[in-house]
């Protein structure tokens, strides 16, 4: 697997006015190969999350293109890109992300419902490795922040994606859970996935092979 950003940039308009805009990510070239765990660190508002969303196919670049094994993600139509993401991109978003009215197991197996891989057994195994297998039948709305974070990591890993993007994956986790989560991400990389972690957490940065810094939308290698 190789994910490559070529001259990727994204600007946003303020108050919907065409003349008042800013670049969250400035023209950036970036490559991440399978087997690598990379970190993007930087201050809040520096453009890290926007960059992660661009790479994950969740946000269309205003300039440049994003290639997954040579395929331009944004040349696909919306449905094809959605299905492609379900199978190939595991995404752990910043903040809590769960369907409150589904159980933990149902949340984790969501990608399988939209054409991604994975099944109930793999979901249970992932929940076990993250220490929340006993919560499989609990509704997501009843989870603590840390439990919900681990659940979304399990969901991202379920289809055995080639690319895993985790935005602050250890933000709500205690040290033991952080170790477990980073261990799973490392294991995924060892199995061929490219892993990009957006983080403030020194423990997470320390577990990565490559570290990038983002400042005012400009990405640089540290």
């Amino acid at each position: 697997m190789e994910i490559r950003a070529e001259g990727v940039a994204r600007r946003f308009f303020r108050n919907g006015r065409n003349t008042n805009y800013f670049y969250a990510v400035r023209k950036t070239d970036f490559t991440l190969k399978g087997g690598t765990v990379a970190a993007v660190a930087g201050r809040s508002g520096s453009g890290k999350t926007t960059f992660a969303n661009l790479l994950g196919g969740l946000l269309r670049p205003t300039e440049g293109r994003v290639l997954y094994d040579g395929r331009d993600l944004f040349e696909m139509d919306e449905k094809a890109r959605s299905r492609f993401r379900a199978a190939n991109v595991g995404f752990v978003p910043q903040g809590l992300s769960a369907l409150q009215n589904l159980t933990v197991l149902e949340n984790v197996t969501l990608p399988a419902c939209f054409g991604g891989g994975g099944d109930r057994e793999r979901a249970m195994a992932l929940l076990g490795e993250l220490g929340i297998a006993d919560l499989a039948d609990v509704y997501a709305g009843e989870l603590s922040g840390g439990e919900a974070r681990r659940m979304s990591i399990a969901r991202a890993l379920l289809p055995v994606p080639g690319l895993i993007i985790a935005d602050e994956p250890t933000g709500d986790l205690d040290p033991a859970s952080t170790t477990a989560a980073l261990g799973l991400l490392r294991k995924a990389a060892e199995n061929g996935a490219g892993v990009l972690i957006v983080t403030h957490d020194p423990a997470a940065v320390g577990a990565c092979d490559l570290v990038y810094a983002m400042e005012n939308g400009v990405l640089s290698r540290e």
Binding site: L58, E78, K79, S82, R83, R85, A86, A87, F91, P93, S97, A98, L99, N107, L110, P111, C113, F114, G115, G116, R155
Partner: peptide, 11 residues
């Protein structure tokens, strides 16, 4: 957003 991240299309 959770559904879209999991691979759901607008449809």
């Amino acid at each position: 957003a959770v559904l879209r991240i999991s691979g759901a299309s607008p449809g």
